[in-house]
Every structure is written in structure tokens, then in C-alpha cells.
Amino acid sequence: MSIQHFRVALIPFFAAFCLPVFAHPETLVKVKDAEDQLGARVGYIELDLNSGKILESFRPEERFPMMSTFKVLLCGAVLSRVDAGQEQLGRRIHYSQNDLVEYSPVTEKHLTDGMTVRELCSAAITMSDNTAANLLLTTIGGPKELTAFLHNMGDHVTRLDRWEPELNEAIPNDERDTTMPAAMATTLRKLLTGELLTLASRQQLIDWMEADKVAGPLLRSALPAGWFIADKSGAGERGSRGIIAALGPDGKPSRIVVIYTTGSQATMDERNRQIAEIGASLIKHW
């Protein structure tokens, strides 16, 4: 067993022997301040990774656009098919120029040779490549099948209805392509620590998230040296922004954090800054 596999296998073990965790309302004060600064709703939840206990939450059962955070769930569904012998990570998928959609920095470079399922998941999570996500959605049967996968996990809230990039439209009061912070946090925890996926697939999923290259201005910008984070960000229309993450000190994750916002007129930089400040408060009061 590799060191990384050992780390993920012992996530519940280490967490069980940690000192009790206590909620700190100071972080919620910052979440509410972010709402004021952005002029928009902000949803927040913080779960203990081992027990699933909610440590703090704000608007945990209000719907927010998922945006690209759905790509972690998508690759979880792909990995479940791999575990069941219905898919192979090494299978190569070929596609054409007509398949390319807006923001496809990886797939646009491989029109000639195609990409493997493993490479597509890596591109979808680490670079948020939209064509990679659409190609992977095709392998599982489309958005409705991802929703069905989530329902089978016990998540009857999260739903995907459309493809990239239309799913980022974020129309107010439109339930399409949305989740709730509580539902997303619980589902992410199941994917990373539950028995739904094999140990190898859980490790692969967290490795992809740990290698995320496009979430630097968010929670990662607030992390002290030595902290662990595996995350996936999302951005959408109407001032929408979000991030889902597993993080913790001492090089291992111990909490799940989900943050979503929508309806702001603020710039992307300002949305990023507010999420980073929430992260800084979380870490300060850990």
C-alpha cells in the first residue's frame, strides 16, 4: 500500500482519535458579512469528516447552483462504474471539434489522439474542462443518470439537468442544476469515506481534487503551510461562485467545507476574496 493510499485508508482512524471539535460562531459572522459585502445569498456548511456531524452552517438547506462543483460527483459516478466493471479508466475516447464547448483548455489539445477516461476526469476536476465533463456525462448516460446515481446514494436534493455550459445559467428560483450545502457536503463525505467506492477509487477521487489547479484564489489562499486540501470550485452566471473541499491540518483532511453564493453584482475577484476570507476565519478558529 502506498503512503497516499495509507493516508486515505486511515482518515477515519486518525479522526477518531482527534480531540473533540467545537464550532466557532466567528466564522458564521464572516459568512454573514460576506453576504453584506456581496449583496447576495451565501450558503455555508462545515462537517466533521469522521462523524458527519454538522459543526457550523448557514442557509444549509437553500438551493444554490452547483456550477462546476458537480464534476466531482460526476467522476465519482464514473469511478463507481469502474468498480462495477462497467468502465475502464484506460479506455480512450475520441471526439471532434464539434464536441468542444466553451472553456476546454485540455480537451482542445487532444482532438487528434483523444483522451482516456482517467485523463478526462483529471481534466474535468483539476482544470474544470467543460468538454471533458460533457464527454464523461455521455459515458454514464447524461445528466439524468448522474441525478439517479445521487438518488441511489441517498441524495434526493442534488440534481443535474443540463450539460456544460448551460448548467451554469443560475436563474433565480430555478431548481435545475442545483444542490443544497448540506446535501453536497453529505454526498461528498460519502464519496470520500464511505463504502460506495473502493479504496482505490476513493484515493483516485481525492487525488484529482488535491491536484486542483484553478481554485488557488479561494480556500487555498488562506491555508497555512502543512495543511491538506482537496477541492473543486465552480463559477456561473449572475454572480455565482462555489467551492467544495476536504481539508485539515497535519497533512490530512478532517472536515468537509461547502460554500456557495449566487445573485451578486460583485466582480469575480471580490467573490473570490470573500470566500478566501471565510476560509481564513475557519482556519483561525479551527
Results as ranks from 00 to 15, higher is better:
Ser201Asp: 08
Ser264Phe: 03
Ile93Tyr: 01
Asn152Phe: 09
Ala183Phe: 10
Leu47His: 04
Val72Lys: 00
Gly279Phe: 15
Leu137His: 02
Asn272Pro: 08
Ser104Leu: 04
Thr27Ala: 05
Thr179Val: 11
Phe70Ser: 09
Ile283Gly: 11
Ala235Lys: 15
Asp269Val: 10
Leu196Phe: 11
Ala183His: 03
Arg255Asn: 09
Gly251Val: 13
Ile243Asn: 09
Ile256Trp: 10
Val29Ala: 06
Lys232Gln: 11
Leu111Pro: 02
Leu219Pro: 13
Ile244His: 09
His24Leu: 09
Gly251Thr: 13
Glu108Gly: 10
Phe64Gln: 03
Gly251Leu: 08
Ala77Glu: 05
Lys252Gly: 09
Thr139Asn: 14
Arg255Glu: 14
Asp99Met: 07
Ala34Val: 04
Ser264Lys: 00
Trp163Glu: 10
Arg271Ser: 13
Glu61Ser: 02
Ile93Gly: 00
Gly76Cys: 02
Ile244Thr: 13
Asn50Tyr: 09
Phe228Gln: 14
Pro105Gln: 02
Gln37Lys: 03
Ala182Gln: 04
Ser221Ile: 15
Arg63His: 04
Leu218Cys: 12
Thr193Gly: 11
Ile256Glu: 07
Asp231His: 13
Glu145Ala: 14
Glu62Cys: 05
Ala200Gln: 05
Leu205Pro: 04
Met153Gly: 04
Ala124Leu: 07
Val214Trp: 15
Gln203Met: 13
Val31Pro: 13
Leu74Thr: 01
Leu28Glu: 02
Gly236Leu: 15
Leu137Glu: 03
Ala185Thr: 13
Phe228Ser: 14
Tyr95Met: 14
Met184Lys: 12
Ala40Leu: 13
Glu277Phe: 06
Leu49Pro: 00
Asn173Phe: 06
Phe228Leu: 13
Leu219Ala: 12
Ala124Lys: 02
Asp155His: 03
Thr27Ile: 08
Gly239Leu: 10
Gln265Val: 13
Ser104Pro: 06
Ala245Glu: 12
Glu26Leu: 11
Thr69Met: 13
Phe149Ile: 06
Asp113Lys: 07
Leu223Gln: 00
Ala276Asp: 14
Gln88Trp: 08
Gln37His: 13
Asp207Gln: 05
Leu89His: 03
Thr69Gln: 09
Leu188Arg: 15
Ala185Asp: 12
Leu219Lys: 13
Lys109Pro: 02
Leu205Phe: 04
Arg81Gly: 08
Leu196His: 08
Ala235His: 13
Pro217His: 04
Ile244Arg: 12
Thr112Asp: 04
Ser233Arg: 10
Gly251Ala: 08
Thr178Gly: 14
His94Met: 13
Asn173Gln: 05
Ala77Met: 12
Pro253Thr: 13
Arg159Val: 06
Ile140Cys: 02
Ala185Trp: 12
Asn272Gln: 09
Glu87Ile: 06
Phe64Lys: 05
Gln88Val: 03
Ala185Glu: 12
Leu218Ser: 15
Val258Glu: 07
Gly263Pro: 00
Ala132Trp: 04
Asp269Glu: 08
Ala148Lys: 03
Thr107Lys: 01
Arg59Asp: 02
Gly194Asp: 04
Met66Ser: 06
Val31Glu: 12
Ile256Leu: 12
Met66Leu: 10
Tyr260Trp: 13
Asp155Gln: 03
Val258Trp: 03
Pro65Leu: 06
Asn168Gly: 00
Glu195Tyr: 00
Ile256Ala: 09
Ala215His: 15
Gly194His: 00
Ile283Tyr: 05
Met67Val: 15
Arg91Ile: 04
Arg202Ala: 04
Leu282Lys: 03
Met209His: 03
Glu62Gly: 08
Asp36Val: 05
Asp231Ser: 14
Arg241Asn: 11
Leu150Asp: 02
Val106Lys: 12
Lys144Leu: 05
Leu197Ile: 08
Gly216Thr: 14
Ser57Met: 03
Leu160Asn: 01
Asp207Thr: 04
Thr131Ser: 12
Leu197Lys: 00
